[in-house]
Design a protein around this nucleic acid. Structure first.
Length: 294
DNA sequence: CTGACGTCCTGACAGC
DNA sequence: TGCTGTCAGGACGTCA
């Protein structure tokens, strides 16, 4: 369930620890966590051992660590052509640990050596195995992994194209929630923040996208950004800069949710009972008074 | 091309 | 106590 804010918190936590660090060993405990890797586990290990990470980047819910080409590593030059791509799926975590520290449900482990911070360990923990790690080629001038290329820019990206989003959105023949969960249209939004943003914009989750005015689209986009920024700020204040440790409820900032998981309680705006309905094999939480189908 | 939907996946937890 | 059933949903393949 990690969405954009949670993934960004992980990225910010990893950045100082992985930049310039070299991978000394990799252990794959469960090959299912390599579902998105094009090749066997041995190939994954071969490509990653000895690699030096140059940073940590993100688009939507995808996170990746670019790898400096081995031949150029000694001189500190060379543009990355591959990256370690991480998707947390439903329950994934990347836990930054010191050596010897273990975590239950670790599916993949990377031992890394940082020039300043020394020996560290990255435990990829994932209960439901919807997440994955993969080594993937960087495309489009080395700016993005091939398996992330089809993902739209996220609403916090300075290069997010509002006009393009607005046009594609209103051309869709579907409900607004399906649309904002479509990562090829706008990325980074999952079930929780979709419900929160729709509540803030007073939109019913099945409202047809074609009926939305330009103003309403603008309002929704503004609310999406507000919800994501707020969650990011809360996550940013609660995580330890030394060790990434995002997990379950504590990573979810649940104290500030207005409708998600609040079924049976009063709407914070009008007091009407918040409802939960089945939708896309998930739950949709909304206020029947504030969010009417029009 | 687009929209809709089934599938993957397992630990935590409630209830008997 | 120990077992069983239920629940959570991101991404993607497939089908109409």
């Amino acid at each position: 369930m990690p969405e954009l804010p949670e993934v960004e918190v992980v990225r910010l936590g990893l950045l100082p620890a992985v930049t310039g660090a070299r991978v000394s060993a990799v252990t794959v405990f469960d090959e299912r966590s390599l579902r998105r890797h094009d090749g066997p586990a041995e190939d994954f290990v071969d490509r990653i051992v000895g690699a030096e990470f140059t940073g940590a980047q993100r688009r939507g819910k995808f996170l990746w660590l670019p790898i400096r080409p081995r031949r150029a590593s000694a001189s500190g030059e060379g543009t990355p052509r591959e990256a370690l791509v991480v998707h947390l799926g439903m329950s994934g975590q990347v836990l930054l640990r010191t050596r010897e520290q273990d975590d239950r449900l670790t599916r993949i482990r990377l031992e890394i050596e940082h020039p300043v911070q020394g020996a560290l360990r990255l435990n990829f923990v994932d209960q439901r195995i919807f997440g994955s790690m993969a080594v993937d080629a960087l495309v489009s001038d080395g700016s993005i992994p091939s398996q992330v290329a089809h993902i739209a820019r996220d609403p916090l990206d300075p290069l997010f194209d509002v006009a393009l989003f607005s046009r594609k959105l209103t051309q869709r023949k579907t409900g607004i929630k399906r649309a904002i969960l479509d990562q090829t249209l706008i990325s980074g939004i999952g079930n929780i923040y979709a419900d929160e943003a729709l509540w803030a914009a007073r939109l019913h989750y099945e409202q047809p996208t074609a009926t939305l005015t330009r103003q309403k689209v603008s309002l929704l986009l503004a609310e999406v950004r507000t919800v994501l920024r707020k969650a990011l700020a809360e996550g940013g204040t609660s995580f330890d800069a030394q060790y990434v440790n995002v997990n379950g409820a504590s990573g979810y900032f649940s104290h500030s949710l207005n409708v998600y998981g609040q079924q049976g309680k009063g709407c914070p705006r009008c007091g009407r009972e918040v409802k939960r309905e089945q939708f896309m094999n998930r739950g949709s939480h909304f206020c029947p008074r504030c969010q009417r189908l029009r």
